[in-house]
Each structure stands twice: as structure tokens, then as C-alpha cells.
Amino acid sequence: MRNTNNELQRYTAAYFSNEDDLKGSTAEARLRGFTIHDVFSPFPVHGMDEAMGLKPSRITWAAFAGGLAGLVTAVVLQIWTSAYDWALNIGGKPFNTPLLFVPVSFELTVLFSGLTSVIVLFYLSGLNPFSKRKSLPGVNDDKFVLVLDHSGASFRKEAADEIFSKYNAEKVVEGDLV
């Protein structure tokens, strides 16, 4: 990753052995003015979003929009085919039977909503089958990692080391973000 001066960005990663230490150090680092690049864990740590200062996701709106699209599609499809394009007398029922269009409408609402949410998730998070992204060692196993950015003047080595030792960091690694 390159910053505005086209230099490779430096980072410092601290490895912890449990989620409480990770959460505490993340919260403290953010409150003391560090820039958090990201936090890595083998499972979603409850409260980590707040520790990092993340805003709630907008994906729920995508789900809602998808569901609405599904509902409209289903209603239009059924009414147009059954009552307008080629209306057939089925069991003496009226051509437009809203009550009987409920099942398909419901299914398409759910289908569109679910698929939209997942597609938006993949897009926003860069998840795709061609991704060559590597994981930091152990984050999908039993390590919990806090990665601080050196961008701007936010990184102060001594203060950072104090936080890391306060929360029992197992190791601290510096490097360039690629």
C-alpha cells in the first residue's frame, strides 16, 4: 500500500494470545490517538467494532433494498402473467388473487434480500475466488493481532510499546504494508 507520497506504508503489528488483550489494546490505542489499520482474529470478537471505532454497517440497507426488489418483481410478475398477459380460469378463482400470490412473493423477497446482502458483503470486503490475499500467521488459528498504521504523525513507538506490554503482547513486528 502506498501513501500520498507514493512511499510504502509502514505498520507495526502486535500479536496477542487472547481476545480480551486484543480488545483492550485496540481500545486504548484508538483512544490515545493511534491510527488502527486493522485488527485480525480467528473469530469475531464481541465489542471489537466499538474498540476500533467502526461505524455500523450499511449492509442492512442493501438487504432491505434487495428484499423490496424481490417483492416488487414477484408481485408484478404474478399479476401481469396471471391477470393480464394470458389470464386463465383456474378453479373459478378471480384472475387477480392477492392472497394466493403471497407464497411466491414471500420467497422471492427472501431470496433477493439474502443474495444481495452476500454480494454486497463480498464486494465491500474484497472477497472473491481470485484473491491472493495472505493472512498474518496464526490469525485463523489462535493469534489475535493489532496492526497500527504509521501514517501521519499518529505513531509513537514508546507509547505503543507501553500499550503492547500492558496487554501482554507476545511479539511485535514492524514492516511494510503490501
Partner: peptide, 14 residues
């Protein structure tokens, strides 16, 4: 799909 344990992803995932 390139999953790397990032919490920004975990957040949306949840």
C-alpha cells in the same frame, strides 16, 4: 475468497 481474519470484514460478516 481471500479471507484474512480482518475485523473490518468480520464486522460486515456478522
Amino acid at each position: 475468497l481471500g479471507w484474512n481474519g480482518s475485523n473490518r470484514t468480520w464486522s460486515r460478516y456478522e
